[in-house]
Design a protein around this nucleic acid. Structure first.
Lengths: 361, 361
DNA sequence: TTGTATGCGTTATCAC
DNA sequence: GTGATAACGCATACAA
C-alpha cells in the first residue's frame, strides 16, 4: 500500500487558486434604511433593537428591509453611545503555554455565555509592553481588564492608574498584594496538601516528593503542603524521600527519581510538583518497568503542557487553569454589573489546583 | 534543608488583602481641556495629534494640561471617524494547541510592529460559533480578519459575505479552495521532502518513515515528500522501513519503532510525521539505549506541543507556525494598505514546515 | 407609536 | 494659527 507511484500526484497545497478581486463598499446604516422606508432613523433604531414602543408592522417592515439591504449594526458606534463595548480585555505573559491559554479559554467560556467578547494581549513577560497594552485597553472602552502580570513587573502604577479611571480590573495568578482588587490565584499549599491526602487515603504511606528549588515561594508552599498532609496523618517525614531539584526539567526529575528508586528506599507513591517533572518520573518508570499506578502512584499539579500526554483523558475544562479563567471572568462580570450599584466588594478567590495524574485505584 | 518547621508558615496566597473601594469617573475629553484652556476643541485635537498647523506655545500648553488632567484619547471614537480601528481579528479553532497559539504570536508580532492590535477568538471547532464570531468581527470595524476554519466548516458563505462587505479576509492553514482570497498554508509535500533531503545530505540512507493514516491528505502529502526525496537521491524505497500507524499517539509510534528496531532491519535515521510521534520514538530509543543522534537521527515536523521538550533549544519564533502567523499578518496588512489603491492581488503563500528535531551532526 | 433634536468623542473642512 | 461646524453611526429624551 505504501508503494504507490508518485509521478502524477499533485500535493493538495498546489491546488489552491490565485485570483484577483476586490471591491470597496460603504456599509448600509440605519440612515439608509430610514430613507428607503420614509421613516425616521429613530424608528429604525427602535425596530432593530426590538424596542417595545413600536408597532408590529413598522418593525416587521424595517427588519425585512434591513435584511434585504444587508444591514449590520456598527458595534463601534454602539459602544461609543452605550459607553460599553461588551468586551473584556485580557493580558497574559504569553498564550504559548497551556496554563495561560487554558485560563483564557476559561475566561472566554464564561464571557461568551453573557454575550461578552474577549480581547487578548500578550505582554511577552515585558513590563514595557504590559504598560502599553493596559493603556490601549483602557482607551478602547473595554468593560473590564483581566491581568496576569509579567515577570518583569514590579511597579503597578499603570494598573492603579486605570483603576483610578474607573475601569474594572481583576488580577489572576500573577498578582500583586499592593493592589486592592479582586484576585484569583491558585493555592499551592492547600493544593499540594489535598493531593497528598488523596494519596494517603488510598493507602499510600511512603510518598516521595519531587519539586523545584525551595527558594521559590511556589515551591516552598507546595512542599509545606506535602509535609502538612503527612503530619496530619501522623506519617513521619522521611528526608530521603523528599527531593529538591534545581530546575523544572524532565531529565533532572527522571534522574532524581531513578536514584531514589535504585537506592532501595522505594516510595509507593510520588507527589510531583508539576507535570513536567511527572513526565520525567513516568519516563524513568517505563524504563525501569515499574507498574503505574499499581506499583507506584504518581500525582501532582497538572497545569502544564504535558498534562494531556500524561493523562490523555484529561479535557481542557478539567484543568485548574481553565477554572481560574472561569472564576476570573465571573468575578469581573459581577463587578461590571454592580458598577451602577456602587457597592462592589473585592474578593480574593483561591483555587486548589488538584489534578491527579496517575493515581492508584 | 527540607526539614523546616511549618507551624508558623503562612502560605503566600493567604497574605492577599480583601478591601473595598470603588469610584466611577467620567473620563476627560478634548472638550474639557478646550474649555479649561479657552481654546476650541479643534485646536486641542490638532495639538494632541501633533499637527503641523499649530503654534508651538499652544501645543505645549495643551500637552501640559492634557497630562495634568489625565487625558486619554478615546480609541473607539477615533475608530468611528477614521473608519479604521487598527485591529486585526483572528479566528482559530482553539488557542490551546501550540500550533495555533504560535500562529497567533506570529500574527501579533508582525501586527505590533505597525501599531496594530489583535483580537483573538476561538471557534472551538464549531461552525456555528465561527459564524457568530465572523459576524461580530465584521461589525466591530476590524481592519482585517484572519481565519483558520473549524473542522466542522463546510459552507463558506459567512466568509464570502464579509468579503462582499469589503472587509479584507485572509485564510491560513485551514483554508478553502472555494474562496478567492489570500492564503497561507504549509506545504506538507515539500516540507517532508526537505527534511528527508536534510538527513540524506548528512549521509543517512536507511531512513525510516513513521506517519499517520494515509487516508488523510496531510499524511499522504508528507509520505510522498519522503518518497520523492529518496527517489531523487536514488535511494531505493524500502517498504519495511515505512510504517503507517493508525493514530497520532505516542505509544503507537513507540511500539511501531520498537518492532522496527528489533526486527534487525535497523534504520540509521527516522523521519517522523509529527513530534508527538517523534516523542514516542525518542522514549523507546531511551529505553533501548540507542544513542541519539549518533546511532540514530530523528527529524520531522515540529508544530506540536511536545516540540520544546524534544528540542529544548527551540524558541517560539523558530516554529513554522509562528512564521505562518507572521506571513499571514504581513499579507493582510499589505491588503489593508492597498485598499485605497484598489489594486490588490491575492496571493497564496506556501510555507515549508521544516523543523529538524534531533539531527545527527 | 413616531419624529425631532441632541450627544457620544473625535477628526476634518471650511472659514477667518 | 485658530475657531466654528459638520460629520462618523447610533441611541434616546422629549415633543408631537
Amino acid at each position: 500500500m505504501l508503494d504507490r507511484k508518485i509521478f502524477f500526484y499533485i500535493p493538495s497545497t498546489f491546488k489552491l487558486n490565485n485570483k484577483i478581486a476586490f471591491n470597496m463598499k460603504k456599509s448600509v446604516t440605519i440612515k439608509d434604511i430610514a430613507k428607503e422606508l420614509n421613516v425616521s432613523i429613530a424608528t429604525v433604531s427602535r425596530a432593530l433593537r426590538n424596542s417595545s414602543e413600536i408597532s408590529k408592522e413598522t418593525k416587521k417592515a424595517v427588519l425585512k428591509l434591513a435584511k434585504e439591504m444587508d444591514y449590520h449594526p456598527n458595534l463601534v458606534a454602539r459602544s461609543l453611545i452605550n459607553k460599553s463595548s461588551r468586551v473584556l480585555g485580557v493580558v497574559v505573559p504569553t498564550i504559548n503555554r497551556q496554563f495561560w491559554s487554558n485560563s483564557i479559554s476559561g475566561i472566554e467560556n464564561e464571557a461568551y455565555k453573557v454575550g461578552y467578547k474577549v480581547m487578548i494581549f500578550q505582554s511577552a513577560e515585558s513590563y514595557q509592553k504590559e504598560v502599553e497594552i493596559v493603556e490601549i485597553l483602557a482607551n478602547s472602552m473595554v468593560d473590564g481588564i483581566l491581568i496576569a502580570f509579567s515577570k518583569e513587573t514590579q511597579d503597578f502604577a499603570h494598573v492603579q492608574h486605570v483603576v483610578d479611571r474607573g475601569i474594572p480590573v481583576l488580577l489572576f495568578e500573577r498578582v500583586s498584594e499592593f493592589l486592592q482588587l479582586s484576585k484569583v490565584v491558585t493555592d499551592d499549599f492547600l493544593g499540594a496538601k489535598t493531593i497528598v491526602n488523596h494519596l494517603i487515603e488510598r493507602g499510600k504511606n511512603r510518598i516521595a516528593y519531587i519539586g523545584g528549588p525551595l527558594s521559590l515561594t511556589v515551591c516552598m508552599d507546595r512542599f509545606l503542603g506535602y509535609k502538612s498532609a503527612l503530619l496530619e496523618n501522623k506519617i513521619p517525614f522521611d528526608e530521603k524521600l523528599a527531593i529538591e531539584i534545581s530546575d523544572f526539567n524532565v531529565e533532572y526529575a527522571g534522574r532524581a527519581f531513578k536514584e531514589l528508586w535504585e537506592s532501595g528506599n522505594r516510595p509507593d507513591a510520588v507527589f510531583c510538583f508539576a507535570d513536567v517533572l511527572a513526565l520525567g518520573v513516568l519516563a524513568v518508570s517505563k524504563e525501569l518497568k515499574i507498574k503505574i499506578p499499581f506499583e507506584l502512584a504518581i500525582a501532582g499539579f497538572g497545569n502544564d503542557e504535558i498534562a494531556k500526554y500524561v493523562s490523555p483523558s484529561l479535557t481542557t475544562m478539567d484543568q485548574p487553569s481553565f477554572q481560574i479563567g472561569q472564576l476570573a471572568a465571573k468575578l469581573i462580570l459581577e463587578q461590571i454589573n454592580s458598577e451602577e450599584k456602587d457597592d462592589f466588594l473585592f474578593k480574593t478567590e483561591i483555587i486548589k489546583p488538584v489534578l491527579v495524574i496517575r493515581e492508584s485505584t
